[in-house]
Design a protein around this nucleic acid. Structure first.
Lengths: 132, 132
DNA sequence: CTTGAGTCTGTAGCGACTACAGACGGTAGA
DNA sequence: TCTACCGTCTGTAGTCGCTACAGACTCAAG
C-alpha cells in the first residue's frame, strides 16, 4: 500500500508517517520504481501500535521502548509494565495539576462582576499587588 | 533591581525573564552603565502577573491579551472573562482526555500477568491485530 | 590581584509534529 | 494525446515555552 492509504487506515497524516520513519519508529519500506514508499501489513500493524500508544499519551521515546520490547517476545513483561505504570503516574500527576488549575480558574471567574477592568476581580487576582 | 533579584523574587529563571522581554511580555527596562538590566517595581508587578497567569495555564498569547486589558482600565471586564472562560473550557477538556487515558491505562496495566512479552496483555492491547 | 558569581548577546535544542516549496508520478476525462 | 489534478517525493522551517549553552564582560569580596 502507498503512504496515503496507510495514513488513512491509521488516521495519521502522511507527513506524520514520514516523520515516524525519520524518527526511527517505523522501518523504511520498499520503494516502487517511481520511488514511492510501498508498505506491507507489518507496517500497518506497527503504525497501529504507535498510534494506539500515542493515543494513550506515551512519548515517542516510550513508544520506541515498547516497540523494542514487543519485538523481544521472550523477555519478561515487567519492563512493559514499568513503562506503562510510570506513564500512568505521570498522567495522574497531570490530572491533579489541571484539577487544581480548574478550581482556581472557577474561583477567579466566579468573582467577575462584569464591570470595568479597573475593578475586575480576575485582573486583581492575577496581579497580586496592584494598587493603582 | 537586577535581573537575578527579579528572577528570584518571582521564582523565574533569568533566561526566562529575558525570554519574556524578547517575546514582548515584559517591557525592556533601563540599563546601567555596564549595560545590566535595571528593573523597577512595575516590572516586578508585571512579571508576577505573567507568572501567576502561566501557573493557571494561560498561553503566552493569552497572557499578552490579559496584560493589554489590564492596562486598559476603562474597558469592560467581559473580554477578560471571555479569555478566562475559554481557557477553563480547554482545561476541562484536557482533564476529560487525561481521565479517559487514565482509565485505559489502568485497565491495560491491571491485565498484566507478569509473564513474558509473548503473552503480555499490555503489548496485545497496544498492537490490536498481532497474531504471531 | 584573583577568584567566583552575575550579567550580556546570540544561537541552538527540546517534543511531536505541521506546513510549506518545488519537483516529479500516475490517472481519468475531453 | 493532452491536460488537469491528485498523490508522492525531499528538504527545510515553523510551532510553543522555554532551556542551555558559548564566549565575553562586570562587579564585589577576600
Amino acid at each position: 500500500m502507498k503512504i496515503g492509504e496507510l495514513a488513512r487506515a491509521t488516521a495519521t497524516k502522511v507527513e506524520t508517517v514520514r516523520f515516524y520513519e525519520r524518527a526511527g519508529l517505523l522501518p523504511p519500506p520498499d520503494r516502487t520504481d517511481a520511488n514511492y514508499r510501498s508498505y506491507g501489513p507489518e507496517h500497518l500493524q506497527r503504525l497501529s501500535f504507535i498510534r494506539r500508544s500515542r493515543d494513550l499519551g506515551f512519548s515517542l521515546d516510550a513508544v520506541r521502548d515498547l516497540l523494542a520490547l514487543a519485538d523481544d517476545r521472550g523477555k519478561p513483561c515487567d519492563a512493559v509494565d514499568a513503562i506503562a505504570s510510570g506513564h500512568l503516574a505521570e498522567v495522574e500527576r497531570k490530572i491533579a495539576d489541571l484539577t487544581a488549575m480548574r478550581g482556581e480558574l472557577r474561583r477567579v471567574i466566579g468573582s467577575c462582576r462584569h464591570n470595568t477592568v479597573a475593578d475586575c476581580k480576575i485582573i486583581e487576582t492575577l496581579g497580586p499587588r496592584r494598587d493603582a
